[in-house]
Design a protein around this nucleic acid. Structure first.
Length: 585
RNA sequence: GCGCCCGUAGCUCAGCUGGAUAGAGCACCAGACUACGAAUCUGGGGGUCGGGAGUUCGAAUCUUCCCGGGCGCGCCA
């Protein structure tokens, strides 16, 4: 049930018939033909640009094509009137009966409303969070987490077979530093004094204290005076496991569950990086060369031009060729990441989405280049960048210092305002725009708070339905939808609300195509607004209230209308994994 | 220096694969409740869509150049 798609099919079939009748050339390409609501409602309910799009292809003036099409469209059921405007827009006005039938069909399609099998079971890999396992998640991670999880849910709803994946960077210098910090906490647990700057190159956060204690309990002072080589592996893997479990708890608190955690270290240990390297080398995509020093900023003190293994990223649209090995012989982050994406391709994903922080923007081109290279141009990677989250409390910035280890964690925020509020607010901005997250406003019960605003609409309707059940039980009979006469819905605000409900599949489609779940959050706010408006009309004109005790016919129709609003709000919140509320506390 | 992202009302931001006279909220002003929950709603003023050029029937949207802001630029991830 998607009226835009249906009307587009109608327009396309009329174009075809005009071709058959010889009024238009046959075999016309109709890509670009759209049916959409005109920006100005005064122009009608729906408009199509068909005549303008086809003008050049058909070799006819747009107004002439429009006139031909308009005549045919006007003869269709449900179409009240059609006119041609401007350069060749065909504006349609639809009969009230059309909207009534649309409402009935929305209700009938239930939880499937807006679902369209765009994906046809195609596998998609959504990699998100992928924070280093060196500490708890912070609020910025939370944004990518919610974004990735909701995008995944959205794609699932559109018929894709989605895998939610977390790439664990457990092989680099970061986790080495983590291991050393944990070792210090271990010494501390054994009663040793730590120097003031002991954690200078490590992780000073308190969250490592229990990790040190646990190791002290398990191993006693066995490693206290041992050389690093003896304890390092033990401490590193224990520390990573502990941090991963911390992160899993954080994700759990947000209601996020990944299907797969992929370990960078395992990738390296299994020889996959080596294999990828050999593979690319065999295809002459790796060569030995010397890179210029980075321009525009003073080169690092220890800069020295040296020949190294370079990936021919420039062959795939990147600016420079990228190094794969560090001077100590170990792999660069990029090298392991190529292997990782190659692994995804080999697991059958030719559609991949990576959710990154905006500070990684500079890596997008090389990663796309790498995916082209390892897949032989058969796989596509879309990288979604999430901008910063500015955490505020009553408009004042909440200071965060990772250096001191004292920062507000994602968990702190979730515990304070609840996971549903966090999830919704994270989607009230486009992913590549900075987001201000105000903790005070997140808890506020006013229309400034978008979560509340949408939930309030849902709760109000549930309240009406409860009341109707108590006062007019006969109306809420078993076959309410089947028997109701929707033609009594005649007020402009009622029809507007139905029109808004009809926009849901369109919102879903556009969110799926653009990989932008925030569009659903905006849609839900619009729907809530259309509902609140109708409600208030009932305050001014009691004849427009939903429950009319002396008229069960009208009441039934209106309950179906607002029932459909809760249906769509619940569907939207469902994709967000936010629970619609029955009442506001 | 180069690359990516951004620039829309006083503020915060939408604007769907290019569509008609560019929208919403906040703030400001003026209104609507003996309540199906006013935690809401209605109306009003407010704009060179950063600037120029181009593509076309048509540009906030695409291309290009400039201005301004953010991020990044071998051996961090």
């Amino acid at each position: 049930m998607n009226i835009f798609r249906e009307l587009l099919e109608l327009v396309n079939s009329e174009i075809e018939q005009l071709s058959e009748a010889g009024d238009l050339p046959s075999g016309l390409d109709v890509t670009g033909v759209l049916v959409e609501p005109p920006r100005d409602p005064a122009h009608g309910d729906m408009a199509t640009n068909a005549a303008m799009v086809l003008a050049k292809r058909a070799g006819k003036p747009p107004r002439d094509i429009a006139a031909l099409l308009a005549e045919r469209i006007a003869a269709q059921d449900g179409v009240a009137s059609v006119d041609v405007a401007g350069p060749g827009f065909i504006n349609m006005r639809l009969e009230a009966a059309y909207w009534h039938s649309a409402l009935a069909r929305i209700t009938a399609s239930g939880a499937r409303y807006g679902a369209f099998d765009m994906g046809r079971g195609k596998k998609v890999n959504v990699e998100f969070v992928s924070a280093n396992p060196t500490g708890p998640l912070h609020i910025g991670h939370g944004r990518g987490t919610v974004f990735g999880d909701v995008l995944a849910a959205l794609l699932e709803r559109a018929g894709y077979a989605v895998t939610r994946e977390y790439y664990v960077n457990d092989a680099g210098a970061q986790v080495d530093a983590l291991a050393r910090s944990v070792y210090l906490r271990y010494l501390e647990a054994l009663g040793r004094e730590l120097g003031a700057d002991a954690f200078e190159d490590g992780y000073p956060g308190d969250y490592l204290v229990p990790v040190g204690v646990a190791l002290a309990q398990e191993h006693g002072d066995k490693f206290a005076d041992a050389p690093e080589s003896e304890w390092f592996e033990t401490f590193r893997s224990f520390a990573v496991e502990s941090m991963l479990s911390l992160i899993r708890d954080d994700l759990d608190a947000l209601g996020v569950r990944h299907d797969l955690f992929s370990s960078e270290k395992k990738l390296v240990d299994d020889g996959q990086v080596q294999a990828t390297f050999a593979d690319l080398k065999a295809r002459d995509l790796i060569y030995e060369g010397v890179l210029d020093a980075p321009k525009g900023k003073p080169p690092p003190e220890d800069w020295e031009p040296r020949p190294q293994h370079l990936f021919r990223a420039t062959q795939f649209g990147d600016e420079v060729d990228r190094p794969l090995k560090k001077s100590d012989g170990s792999w660069t982050y990029f090298a392991t990441d190529i292997a990782y994406h190659r692994d995804k391709v080999r697991r059958g994903f030719d559609d991949m989405i990576d959710v990154w922080g905006a500070d990684h923007a500079g890596y997008v081109k090389r990663m796309k280049a790498a995916v082209s290279a390892v897949s032989g141009d058969t796989a596509a990677l879309d990288v979604k960048l999430c901008q910063m989250v500015k955490l505020t409390e009553g408009g004042k910035p909440v200071t965060m210092s990772k250096r001191s280890g004292q920062f507000v964690t994602l968990r702190d925020v979730v515990d304070k305002v609840g996971k549903d509020v966090v999830r919704f607010i994270m989607l009230t901005r486009k992913n590549d725009a900075p987001l201000e997250f105000d903790m005070a406003r997140a808890l506020e019960q006013s229309k400034d708070n978008p979560v509340f605003y949408v939930q309030y609409a849902h709760a109000r309707i549930r309240s009406v339905l409860r009341r109707a059940e108590a006062e007019m039980p006969e109306v809420l009979g078993s076959d309410l939808a089947g028997n109701a006469d929707l033609s009594v819905l005649t007020d402009a605000a009622e029809i507007d609300l139905i029109k808004c409900l009809c926009g849901w599949p369109r919102a879903v489609d556009s969110a799926v195509l653009s990989h932008e779940p925030h569009r659903l959050a905006f849609y839900l706010q619009e729907l809530a607004a259309a509902f609140h408006l109708l409600w208030n009309k009932g305050n001014e004109d009691h004849g427009l209230r939903f429950i009319i005790p002396e008229d069960s016919r009208v009441t039934a129709a209106r309950l179906i209308l607002i029932g459909a609003v809760t249906q769509v709000i619940a569907l939207g919140l469902g994709i967000f994994a936010v629970q619609p509320v029955e009442e506001m506390r």
